[in-house]
């Protein structure tokens, strides 16, 4: 209970202090809006902001799904041959350490469809943890179990489906939780760099627009929605992970009282 209550109480306390400080010191709303003003902005712009959020989340989820599919596939290919791993893994690292902002201008020139641009950039941000964690999992398969599969004449496909993939599930899910957040961050950064605007623009575009017009309350409302989405994605993936591992993995076992 205190796991929810304590952080919630702290949050409310900070919001109250913020509200009081803004009112007492008479800070103008274009410098620092009070929480009540942000809430009001959120309410009055709700349809518009939620439409923007839907656009952003659409890219985020598409990128995450694409990252899972390609990341697992790449990890399986790299794990199948040490030569392939030595040759290609450095490029996976390259993908991870390169700030996507610096690649965005090229992608924008090469790809005309704006959805595709955002998707590519968000995918680049999200795919590495899936590759590296799944690869680690695939390489950590119990040696004796591998021998056992060999002894009973298991085919490569059987070994992959019945042994390697289940064994690497906890590692994969660890990577997925990181990638979920990165997909959202990647999407937001891509939206800002690509400078999408208009009715089909995502929430990051609206945040920028609002800040240019000094409508800081609206900008803060966008920010709050994005943060809440990030937390929601994390919580959902955490739930998924616990659900899948609950019966057998140490990390998700219910504590026995």
């Amino acid at each position: 209970m205190s796991r929810v209550l304590l952080p919630a109480l702290f949050g409310i306390l900070v919001l109250c202090a913020w509200e009081a400080a803004v009112r007492v010191m008479g800070v103008p709303a274009y410098i620092m809006p009070a929480p009540s003003a942000i809430l009001a902005a959120l309410a009055s712009n709700a349809p518009d902001l939620l439409a923007g959020l839907a656009v952003t989340l659409e890219v985020t989820f598409a990128a995450l799904i694409l990252a899972v599919a390609t990341g697992v596939l790449i990890a399986v290919l790299l794990a199948s041959s040490p030569l392939a791993e030595r040759t290609f893994f450095p490029y996976a690292v390259f993908l991870q350490v390169t700030p996507i902002v610096t690649i965005a201008p090229f992608i924008i020139i090469w790809v005309s469809n704006i959805f595709a641009v955002l998707l590519i950039l968000a995918w680049m941000a999200a795919v590495f943890p899936i590759i590296s964690n799944t690869l680690l999992g695939l390489k950590s398969v119990d040696r004796n179990l591998k021998d056992l599969f060999r002894l009973y004449g298991a085919s490569r496909a059987q070994t992959l489906w019945k042994l390697s993939l289940p064994s690497c599930l906890p590692y994969f899910l660890g990577g997925l939780r990181i990638s979920g957040g990165l997909a959202l961050i990647g999407t937001v950064v891509a939206e800002m760099v690509a400078g999408t605007s208009g009715t089909r623009s995502g929430l990051a575009g609206r945040l920028l627009e609002a800040s240019y017009r000094l409508e800081l309350a609206t900008a803060f409302a966008c920010f709050a929605l994005l943060s809440a989405s990030g937390l929601g994605i994390y919580a959902a993936l955490q739930w998924l992970s616990r659900r899948l591992l609950r019966r057998w993995h140490e990390s998700a076992r219910e504590e026995q009282v």
């Binding site: 119990d142 004796n144 179990l145 021998d147 019945k162 289940p166 064994s167 993995h249």
Partner: peptide, 26 residues
Amino acid sequence: GFVFQSPTLMPWATAQENCALPLALS
């Protein structure tokens, strides 16, 4: 049949699924 030094069971599978593995593979 081969029995290893450690039980070498698949932690994600039940006793029955573990036991049926050699058959399932064929």
